[in-house]
Simulated scan of single mutants.
Amino acid sequence: MPPSAVFIRHTTKPQQRDKVFAVWQKHMAPAVSANPDHQAYFYCFDNGNPDVIVVYQQYASAQAAAVFLQTPAYLAYLAEVEPLLQGDPEVTSAAPMWSK
């Protein structure tokens, strides 16, 4: 199976970005670090908007991405982070063609 990439753009409620990051560190950093199907993961703060987080994830496959979304760590993260977000994230799936 080919790798699968996901670009995610979260908009937090005003001045909640640091709280969202703390929730991510609590639940997702350990889960992503332990997941061999995460080939790359970049969690970034948007330099132009203090309420935006941009994430790049590369999974071993699209199936691996779907499986991760059902893990207890991800579900706990969602439950805790959703009240801090301004609606649903923008999500784009992509097929990595080249990387360095």
Score class of each variant (00 low, 15 high):
M1G: 10
P2V: 05
P3V: 08
P3K: 07
S4T: 08
S4A: 14
S4G: 03
S4V: 03
S4N: 10
F7W: 08
R9K: 11
H10T: 01
T11I: 11
T12I: 04
P14M: 04
Q15K: 10
Q15G: 07
Q16T: 06
Q16C: 04
D18P: 01
K19Q: 13
V20T: 03
V20P: 00
V20I: 05
F21A: 06
V23C: 02
W24H: 04
W24Y: 13
A29H: 11
A29P: 00
P30H: 14
V32S: 04
S33I: 02
A34V: 08
A34I: 05
N35I: 02
P36D: 07
P36T: 10
D37R: 03
H38M: 11
Q39P: 00
Q39H: 11
Y41E: 05
Y41L: 10
F42I: 05
F42R: 10
Y43W: 13
F45K: 10
N47T: 09
N47Y: 07
N49A: 09
P50W: 03
P50E: 14
D51H: 02
V52R: 07
V54T: 06
V54R: 10
V54Q: 08
V55L: 15
A62Y: 08
A62E: 14
Q63K: 15
A64F: 12
A64S: 13
A65T: 03
A66G: 14
A66Q: 14
V67E: 13
F68S: 07
F68K: 08
F68H: 15
L69D: 05
P72I: 15
A73C: 01
Y74A: 00
Y74Q: 07
Y74N: 07
A76E: 09
L78R: 12
L78G: 02
A79W: 09
A79D: 11
E80K: 13
E80T: 11
V81T: 11
V81A: 12
V81G: 03
L84C: 11
L85C: 06
G87Q: 07
D88L: 15
D88I: 10
D88R: 15
P89A: 08
P89S: 05
V91N: 06
A95M: 10
P96F: 07
P96G: 00
M97R: 08
S99C: 05
K100S: 11
K100E: 08
